[in-house]
Amino acid sequence: MRHVLLLLLGAHLAYARKHSLKYFYTGVSGIDEFPELTVVGLVNDEQFMYFDSNTMKAVPKTEWIRQNVGADYWDSQTRTDIGQHQYFKNNIQVAKARFNQTTGVHTFQQMYGCEFDDQTGATNGFRQLGYDGENFLDLDFKQLRWISPVQQGFSTVQKWNNNRALLESDKQYFSTECIEWLKKYLQYGKSSLEKTVSPQVSLLQKSSSSSVTCHATGFYPSGVKITWMRNDQEHHEDVEVGELLPNEDGTFQKKSTIRVTPDEWKNNKYSCVVEHQGKTKTANEIRTNPGASVPIGIIVGAVAAVILLVIIGVAGFMVYQKKKGFKPVNASDDGSNSSTHSDPKA
């Protein structure tokens, strides 16, 4: 999730990347007091708007969007999201009936949007729906047709694939209007989205017999690669790479854990190499963290990450992590229109 222009022209040419506009919609049933619908919009994985069905109001989450759009924009966004609230409530009930469920906690989610490569000019769009954390429907833009990996989605696939007007509308939207909104948002947030912050890298271990964690935090943009080295050779055995997580200040964190015995660590040269924006940082000294003495920065970042992940429903949305995006509409020069739209019933 995760890419912006660099300040230096030379670095920009070498590390140009894709930019993305994406929204996550999460409908929930069966949890008292928790919003039945939450909506989070992100540009290059930086959250810029939020809505939930408890407050019934779309609000800005960054200064750059607050300064560049007016009340009409937020009124339009709010009206659209209120409409989506009923859409998601209905679709949860449809999905429950198809899966022969009557009780319990259930989620119905949607992720859609677009991205473009600032070097090649290539664009792409995405639209996916999920139920209870599993893929339910996926729009294949190359073939312009809906597909589903589960039998319960087949009737919707047939219905939507027979609606050529809807398919052509999606195709036109994702290839033009969505990209226009993305470029507009990138211009609005230029000073913030073009920042580059290098990661802080630490090796952490709870005890001498515990796994060793390489923790990279505080970096922006989000593209980062963590590699373990053993005696100056890349090492992939017993390595587990964690998910990218947001920090409270808009930067990111990521970790990679290696399982190794104390004797193996002592008798071999292990190190962690973190690559970010063409630069590398290496860590080979372990910081032992007995008990709860984890650095406060990691605690704050992890708490903020958990809060944000709960909001956007990532816990049940992991199936979509390799694709990104969302769908704004009605682009206008003054930014007075909402960047969301309504969806057909399943």
Score class of each variant (00 low, 15 high):
residue 6 L to N: 13
residue 10 G to W: 14
residue 11 A to T: 05
residue 12 H to W: 06
residue 14 A to N: 06
residue 14 A to Y: 04
residue 16 A to E: 07
residue 19 H to Q: 15
residue 23 Y to S: 05
residue 27 G to N: 10
residue 27 G to E: 11
residue 29 S to H: 07
residue 31 I to C: 07
residue 32 D to Q: 11
residue 34 F to N: 06
residue 35 P to N: 02
residue 46 E to P: 00
residue 48 F to D: 12
residue 49 M to P: 07
residue 49 M to S: 13
residue 51 F to G: 09
residue 52 D to V: 11
residue 52 D to H: 02
residue 55 T to D: 09
residue 64 W to S: 05
residue 64 W to A: 14
residue 69 V to K: 00
residue 73 Y to I: 00
residue 76 S to Y: 13
residue 84 Q to V: 15
residue 85 H to F: 14
residue 85 H to G: 01
residue 88 F to A: 00
residue 92 I to T: 08
residue 96 K to P: 08
residue 102 T to N: 04
residue 106 H to D: 12
residue 111 M to G: 07
residue 116 F to H: 12
residue 119 Q to K: 09
residue 122 A to N: 13
residue 123 T to N: 02
residue 127 R to N: 08
residue 147 I to D: 06
residue 155 S to M: 10
residue 157 V to L: 06
residue 159 K to C: 04
residue 162 N to S: 11
residue 162 N to G: 15
residue 163 N to T: 15
residue 163 N to Q: 10
residue 169 S to Y: 04
residue 178 C to W: 01
residue 179 I to G: 00
residue 186 L to Q: 13
residue 188 Y to R: 02
residue 189 G to S: 01
residue 189 G to T: 14
residue 190 K to Q: 12
residue 192 S to R: 14
residue 192 S to G: 03
residue 193 L to V: 04
residue 195 K to M: 08
residue 196 T to P: 14
residue 196 T to Y: 01
residue 197 V to S: 07
residue 201 V to S: 04
residue 205 Q to C: 11
residue 205 Q to T: 12
residue 207 S to Q: 05
residue 208 S to C: 04
residue 210 S to F: 02
residue 210 S to Y: 00
residue 218 G to K: 11
residue 219 F to S: 06
residue 221 P to N: 02
residue 228 W to P: 12
residue 230 R to K: 15
residue 237 E to W: 07
residue 238 D to R: 10
residue 241 V to A: 01
residue 248 E to Q: 14
residue 249 D to N: 09
residue 249 D to T: 09
residue 256 S to A: 15
residue 257 T to F: 12
residue 258 I to S: 03
residue 265 W to Q: 06
residue 266 K to Q: 12
residue 267 N to Q: 14
residue 267 N to I: 03
residue 271 S to P: 00
residue 272 C to G: 09
residue 272 C to R: 08
residue 275 E to S: 06
residue 277 Q to N: 09
residue 278 G to N: 05
residue 278 G to L: 13
residue 291 G to M: 03
residue 293 S to P: 02
residue 295 P to F: 10
residue 298 I to S: 03
residue 301 G to K: 09
residue 302 A to K: 06
residue 304 A to D: 11
residue 307 I to H: 10
residue 316 G to Q: 08
residue 317 F to P: 00
residue 318 M to P: 01
residue 322 K to Q: 11
residue 330 N to R: 14
residue 333 D to C: 04
residue 337 N to L: 03
residue 340 T to K: 08
